[in-house]
Design a protein around this nucleic acid. Structure first.
Lengths: 209, 209
DNA sequence: GCGAGGACATACTCGCCAGTATGTGGGGGA
DNA sequence: TCCCCCACATACTGGCGAGTATGTCCTCGC
């Protein structure tokens, strides 16, 4: 009675999605079996296949969700009327925080290399792949434009905006690799960590106060 | 006659290793089949299994080689008598360059997540895994110590040396993801690119000249 | 020119995993 | 109260890929 009296169909599907993200994070796409996902749920394959028709579809759903999560996290900070440097810092903080708090999804997203193999399979998968790649590209472009805006308004200075953007995103995405949540950790702890990462990249190592 | 008159056994083994690195870079560990490696070589599985007894052994060999390559690249710059800031910059440049020039090996190394699954297999694999993980850790420690030296001698300033090191290595390792060699590209081109990446991280985005 | 072994190729086996076909409990609408 | 269908569980199949067993060529020492 106390536990989940009325969980909607939507929630049940979300549980499967979260379990899949967890598995994909830990083992990657190929090493993850549908039975692993089911086991993580405390269920059987039947449940997984009831909500998702195939393994690629499940993976794409995780990827898509991961994309939505970062986009939603940074978009509010991308279009303020602050100078480029401030906007970029806010976006970077939000991105880093998202890496930590949605780690299963975001690590799966970061290891996009897996996607290569879908290009060899069906035309349908290739089409989905194209859309996802375009979104990824759009996301990077968002950062590049804000960086360029910062250079233009004088709040930033980098050798090359394109290289700088990739460098920044690399540093931020890498968080999914080394970050591990600690027991008793609060949101403030994570925000502090995100701030440290962002400061390190944006202020640099040679910035002597 | 013109081609390869006397290739040693060593070279033949190296070819297999390079082909494996190429495959692991493109598809990751699990999606790579021994037949893929053979096909890349223009040979059959027989040749691969003649030089390496199993798929894990082949993977570990690639990983080990990748480790040797970066270590050899940065070690000469780690122990000079220059200030920490200079040393760290030189190490970072060498690391970035290595990411580009040994990309198949280095991307395989960077996606160390794959290793998780070996922990579940044989005790032998677990032991090898431990050694490799220790080396990886040692490598990171090398960067951290030089960073700390820079902070101590006043040539560097970061919020936290541990976080800074991971941030730096993230930005550098990410090169293996987005870098793609261009036809007609020279070593000087790559050095310039490496320098841009290193400058971006070490000088930061807000470093206004 | 010949025996042997190194460096592969060929032809299998066997287990695992994606996907499917079918069974089942239970809750809600009539 | 009965039925029906939703949300799974159970029980299969089929193919793919790691590993193996054996055959073959070619070279090198004698």
């Amino acid at each position: 009675m106390a536990d989940e009296p009325t969980r909607s169909t939507f929630d049940r599907r979300e549980e499967v999605l979260a379990a899949a993200a967890e598995c994909f994070m830990r083992r990657g796409y190929d090493a993850t079996t549908m039975d692993h996902v089911a086991e993580t749920l405390g269920a059987t394959k039947g449940r997984v296949y009831h909500h998702f028709t195939s393994k690629p579809e499940l993976f794409f759903a995780v990827w898509r969700r991961a994309m939505e999560l970062v986009f939603d996290a940074i978009l509010p900070h991308a279009t303020t009327d602050e100078p480029g440097g401030e906007r970029l810092a806010a976006m970077a903080r939000a991105h880093a925080l998202c890496m930590m708090e949605k780690r299963p999804f975001q690590r799966t997203l970061a290891r996009g290399v897996d996607l290569y193999r879908f290009g060899e399979t069906s035309a349908e998968n290739r089409a989905i792949l194209q859309v996802l790649m375009d979104q990824r590209r759009e996301y990077e472009l968002l950062f590049r434009r804000v960086t360029q805006a910062g250079v233009d308004d004088g709040s930033l200075a980098v050798p090359d905006a394109r290289v700088a953007t990739r460098t920044l995103l690399g540093a931020l995405n890498w968080v999914t690799i080394w970050y591990e949540p600690r027991p008793g950790e609060t949101r403030a702890d994570r925000e502090r960590l995100a701030e440290q990462v962002v400061q390190t990249v944006l202020d640099g190592f040679r910035h002597l106060p």
